[in-house]
Design a protein around this nucleic acid. Structure first.
Lengths: 137, 137
DNA sequence: ATATATCCTATCTGTTTAGTAGTATTTGTT
DNA sequence: AACAAATACTACTAAACAGATAGGATATAT
């Protein structure tokens, strides 16, 4: 399962993409209200996305958030990895968060292969999705 | 990510399948020792698998655990659902643990479709795997 | 100056994860 | 009947994570 936080992050980015206007960034409170996300929790999420160079922010009056890159250059996997960490089902098959299992030797691990397949098919789908493609669907 | 508990459960079942002998069930302590799983934690897991009719147990001297069904009739998904619950990445696309999202309407949800695809491709792989197929690999 | 927005630190409650401890019960053997 | 050896069961714990909330600091447009 992905976390609520991650779901909020995706929905917030899609909302920003849908409301992009060159002059004005999108305010946290607008997103919170329209997407039904607790405002203070959303603040944390948006700041985290900004710290990871997905968003840029502007403070003070008429402040808010804007996509730092084009929506078609922000992949779903990137967002998921920032907010939730690994996508793979086992640490030892994770591409971005690899960690060896404590108790098993990888050469003889019976389940590694299956979860590598799951990872690959999952990434086939998720890598093809961007904030742009989600706004269109 | 699947939990350690779930990984232990799978490895324990594969171990039992590999050590099946008609006369004697497999003891917790043997599995714990050979698979490097904390014994008392493994007890809980094996009892849970027994309560869900994956294993049968025998108490007292020469006791232990046996598969209740043939290894090829125990699917990986069944074990994962017993120990970890849903396999899907969103509650609203789970086949066995469906729950509506609080904040979004499903007809207009932008991300539901993607995660349905992920679920289907994941199940394509995991449904094809059984305790038997894992012993052979 | 002021209103309004993000930024930052701290805190909180409940749940889950990953176990451990100790006792009760069942069963085979002597 | 006694004993040893196995599972069954209840209760507890520590640490991390999920999902937030509170309040003040800072920046900015007017």
């Amino acid at each position: 399962m992905i976390s609520n936080k991650c779901k909020y992050a995706i929905r917030a980015l899609v909302h920003i993409a849908n409301n992009e206007q060159d002059d004005k960034p999108v305010m946290t409170s607008d997103i919170a209200h329209e997407q039904q996300i607790p405002r203070k929790f959303l603040e944390i999420i948006l700041r985290e996305l900004r710290n990871n160079r997905i968003l840029e922010s502007k403070r003070g009056k008429d402040g808010g958030f804007r996509l730092l890159r084009a929506a078609e250059d922000i992949s779903l996997t990137e967002v998921m990895r920032i907010i939730d960490g690994p996508i793979a089902m086992l640490p030892c098959v994770s591409l971005n968060y690899y960690r060896k299992c404590d108790e098993c030797e990888e050469e003889s691990c019976e389940i590694k292969g299956v979860f590598e397949q799951v990872r690959d098919r999952t990434l086939d789908i998720l890598n093809g999705q961007t904030i742009k493609s989600l706004t269109l669907s």
